[in-house]
Design a binder for these strands. Structure first.
Lengths: 188, 188
DNA sequence: GAAATTATTAACCGATCGGTACACATATAA
DNA sequence: TTATATGTGTACCGATCGGTTAATAATTTC
């Protein structure tokens, strides 16, 4: 039961869950796709839920690492980074494998607020909100909590809209909106 | 096969799909909850997918009727209605049975862009976008397409955030953001 | 090198999935 | 009354669900 084997399973499971959904992905499909036997799978993860939680942890790590790093590459001021986030989003939307936000989907499939999967999805959003709020404060916004939350709203809305609509440019429109909100929050 | 019986089945199916999700709701559960036999169910709907599509149609009708009517109750100017939408959202979020947006969830469970369920979910959002854009144009916004899309972004973001976060007031923050965007779009 | 531990496999478990076959009961039409 | 639709319920279909059992293969420990 070497640990890198486990990581490999989580990585593959993440890919399949993200592509096909949670309920729609059976353990048998994962067993086939990973090439491992079912018993081995259940040696590494006691239940399907545990595997989903592990996949979500990896996704959180991957996404936040990429997103925060990309933002820092695109700008070196807090205000600029708040805005640049939407350019990063646009890049993400244009990827072939883009399938929306895994945590929105997790929250949609496991709706009970006490369910561990829902809780973990919520935690991801909380961490993002925290980051946006921190940037808003560093930028000198009048009400950083509010601006941080508004930036989050725009980001989540852009993701959902990118998934469901072809008729507008969510990342661009969200970026423009964020700029207006930021200017207003700095002017006060 | 009287038509009101069919409507009753769709209404109940909508309730259960909304509460528990699509993949998580089996036809057997629906048969039990509606009290009808499985054969009768399949006389009314040839497949589960057909039942889901019927439920989504009803949901679209119910939601848009309620939302647009409520907006008109709250304000009688286009600009005011764009903003009042977020008060209506806040009322919705506070309902006991609030479980997020059924169309976001449908798009999340049926991700293939060509899947009939995904297409129908997208259509709902398109209709809302159209309405917002119309209001933005009537309000005299400089770029009504853009403002309409931004209002939609804020709405979708508020819904997602209301589902996943307890730490901010999405409807209020979205409303404040919408006001800033509207003012900017009118001032130009 | 033998013993003990760990990893892996195929086969299988009851439950549930979406969907049907068929017998029966009811209603209409002649 | 009899023939013909129409609607309903039971029982069942093969496939798949998440998860387990028992035997074997590989590795470690002494």
């Amino acid at each position: 039961m070497r640990p890198n084997k486990r990581d490999e399973l989580v990585r593959k499971a993440l890919e399949v869950f993200y592509r096909d959904g949670f309920h729609a992905t059976g353990m048998d499909k994962l067993v086939v796709e990973t090439g491992v036997s079912k018993t081995s799978m259940y040696k590494h993860f006691r239940t399907k839920e545990e595997l989903i939680l592990a996949a979500l942890r990896l996704r959180d790590e991957n996404f936040r690492n990429w997103f925060l790093r990309r933002i820092e590459e695109l700008s070196n001021t807090p205000a600029g980074q708040l805005i640049a986030g939407f350019d990063a989003l646009g890049e993400w939307f244009r990827e072939d494998k883009f399938r929306g936000c895994m945590f929105i989907k997790a929250g949609a499939e496991y709706q009970d607020k006490d369910h561990p999967i829902h809780v973990q999805a919520a935690e991801h959003k909380r961490l993002l909100l925290e980051h946006f709020t921190r940037l808003a404060r560093a930028a000198g916004a009048r009400d950083p909590e509010r601006l941080g939350c508004q930036i989050l709203l725009l980001k989540e809305g852009a993701i959902v809209t990118a998934v469901l609509l072809n008729s507008c440019e969510p990342a661009q429109d969200a970026k423009a909106a964020a700029q207006v909100l930021l200017d207003a929050a700095l002017a006060g």
